[in-house]
Design a protein around this nucleic acid. Structure first.
Lengths: 205, 205
DNA sequence: TGGGTCGAAATCGTATACGATTTTAGATGA
DNA sequence: TCATCTAAAATCGTATACGATTTCGACCCA
């Protein structure tokens, strides 16, 4: 695995964990020194993430974590509502015990942050579909909103409903009940979208 | 606009036009010389396109136009079927005369290749939705299959049905008949998917 | 005190350079 | 003739270097 791949994975992981606050500038020299490499591979890793929409760039100023509007959140969750049900429906008949166990593990909250655990859970549900492009698109959508989800879970702590929905969703998957799983997923996404949009529409600061 | 952006746009355009045959290796030095720049910006442009799934990379060997399997085609058109109806439904109530005119122009076949004209047509239909991320994802899906669409249109020349469907789709959009437009779009995508999958399943050489 | 200007520091974008890996072609021997 | 080994060429990955642009603070002046 090349240096660029390592750098990309490290930055993507930070994004998925919601560790990078919106508006933060990612300095090439700083990241390069931190990783003990020159800035060329760091630049390429950042460029890749910009190309995928996770980061934004301004010429001669650098690369930063984008600030999302409520309209952006609507789009991102709109895309997730378009994409995830398709992945789920393909997955359900193909899922194995290993997939369910992986989802269970994510539910238990092994991940260091809520956003990362959340992605691990959804990924476990969709992996059996074996649509790598679709999964990558969905991962990027998760990573894009993660910084905001972390912000409002710190303040609102509204994690319980999401957890109950996840548990019910996994149960429906185990029963291979596509109709029911689809219904729960849509409610889940609509609920999450509503919370985030409300947060973005009514900023506290 | 930076050198990287220029290089990226040039390569993406070639992809959308289907000018790059599957399996072709994109040599950094060659592209750099061709564009009159060093290979650093060329590398970054290629990395961006790899990150978006349009190109593939092998460490220490370079970057090439990926060869698609029939399964890949199923995924790509499955994603388009998930994505495009959502974009279209959002667009239809918002479209203006300018959007219809742009679609009309694409239908007339101004673009240099079928694949590029096809993308211009679809883009015109979805632009009013103002979902830039969704549009970018869709563009990349179009670009990924473009090399193959060019290959089989050269041999089969089955362009007529697609054109008729496009015309009917535009007519439904002008009438703001979302139901009908949705139905035509799905038939269109299923037809295109079937042709490509058949081509990939039964390779001529 | 407030606003504007200038210069130094920081940062980015790209070119050049070089070591590492892979490919290719030719020579060798069975 | 064909397989295998070897050395040269091609290509990639990364570091270093430098010019260009932006940012930021000190200074001046009203």
């Amino acid at each position: 695995m090349s240096t660029v791949d390592n750098a990309q994975r490290a930055i993507l992981q930070s994004m998925l964990r919601g560790e990078l606050r919106p508006g933060l500038w990612l300095r090439q020299d700083e990241l390069a020194k931190q990783m003990g490499v020159s800035k060329i591979p760091v630049r390429e890793a950042l460029q890749r993430l910009v190309a995928r929409g996770l980061l934004s760039a301004e010429r001669n100023r650098g690369i930063f974590v984008p600030t999302l509007s409520a309209e952006d959140a609507r789009e991102i969750f709109g895309l997730r509502r378009a994409l995830e049900p398709v992945l789920l429906r393909r997955s359900i008949p193909l899922m194995t015990e290993a997939d369910w166990a992986e989802a269970e593990e994510a539910l238990a909250g092994q991940g260091p942050t809520i956003t990362e655990s959340n992605w691990f859970f959804h990924r476990a549900l969709y992996r059996a579909a074996e649509w790598s492009r679709g999964l990558a698109i969905d991962r990027d959508l998760h990573a894009t909103v993660a910084p905001y989800v972390m912000l409002y879970t710190e303040e609102l702590g509204g994690k319980n409903r999401s957890d109950r929905q996840h548990a019910a969703l996994l149960k429906a998957c185990r029963a291979r009940d596509a109709e029911r799983a689809d219904k729960i997923l849509m409610e889940h996404l609509e609920g999450a979208a509503a919370v985030l949009e409300d947060f973005l529409d009514n900023p506290l600061p």
